[in-house]
Amino acid sequence: MSEPLDVAATRNAYDTVAADYEELLRDELAQKPIDRAVLGAFAEYVVASGGGEVADLGCGPGRVTAYLADLGLDVFGVDLSPGMVGVARAAHPELRFDVGTMASLDIPDASLAGVVAWYSIIHTPPERQAGIFAEFARVLRPGGWLLLAFQVGDEVVHLQRAYGHEIDLHTRRQSPERIRELLEGAGLAEFARTVREPVAPEKSAQAYVLAVSLHA
């Protein structure tokens, strides 16, 4: 099956910006206490449910992967962009990073204690998101935890310049209620939701959804 054009465009965009993206966002979490609190809550729930491997899907340069590792999680990263994976490996050589796609993960069924998709569902067209969530559900063990982060809204933003580079990338804002329905359809129950107002240079509210796998 041929790869969707938007997937190739997303890969190319992130390959282009990888080094500058890592440098510009390296310390971003230090300025965002709510983001850190959400990641901390996710880590606590994973540990309380017995621990195990966690996948940071769409990990980019690995800053969230590294933060979760510092919280004590056994975490690895996966990203569509070989450029981002190369930057992540250089920045965090003690951690594992793989090139892969969220639509077809090279991860065994029911093997993960947790999945994080931190602003990584935002490039997938709505008609393919159900398949992404089904793949998250497949790799999570029963009672495993999923954490999503995304921008709130219904707009599609076409980025033509970002991080100092000319690119061609579409970012889709999301309805939290629609995401909840898609999660339920995949056997993932929303457990908690947090929405905060934008912090410059953000243009929209930011949502964080914690869900748990109901699969037996």
Rank of each mutant, 00 (worst) to 15 (best):
residue 132 I to L: 15
residue 188 L to E: 13
residue 21 Y to Q: 02
residue 213 S to K: 00
residue 65 T to P: 12
residue 209 V to D: 14
residue 25 L to I: 06
residue 87 V to E: 05
residue 96 R to G: 02
residue 152 V to W: 02
residue 164 G to W: 01
residue 143 G to A: 07
residue 58 G to T: 03
residue 210 L to T: 10
residue 176 P to C: 09
residue 10 T to C: 14
residue 18 A to H: 00
residue 5 L to A: 15
residue 107 I to H: 04
residue 8 A to D: 07
residue 56 D to L: 05
residue 129 Q to K: 14
residue 203 K to I: 10
residue 47 V to Y: 00
residue 22 E to S: 11
residue 51 G to D: 10
residue 104 S to G: 04
residue 5 L to K: 13
residue 7 V to Y: 06
residue 85 V to L: 06
residue 98 D to T: 02
residue 171 T to M: 15
residue 178 R to M: 13
residue 128 R to C: 05
residue 17 V to E: 11
residue 83 G to N: 10
residue 23 E to I: 08
residue 191 F to N: 13
residue 123 H to W: 08
residue 22 E to F: 11
residue 183 L to V: 09
residue 65 T to A: 10
residue 79 D to S: 04
residue 171 T to P: 03
residue 135 E to L: 02
residue 107 I to W: 02
residue 31 Q to S: 14
residue 3 E to Q: 09
residue 106 D to H: 09
residue 22 E to Y: 13
residue 90 A to T: 10
residue 16 T to L: 12
residue 169 L to G: 08
residue 90 A to P: 10
residue 5 L to T: 13
residue 117 A to D: 03
residue 187 G to N: 12
residue 137 A to M: 06
residue 24 L to G: 10
residue 130 A to Q: 15
residue 141 R to E: 03
residue 139 V to C: 11
residue 39 L to G: 02
residue 91 A to I: 08
residue 196 R to L: 05
residue 73 L to P: 06
residue 89 R to I: 02
residue 49 S to T: 02
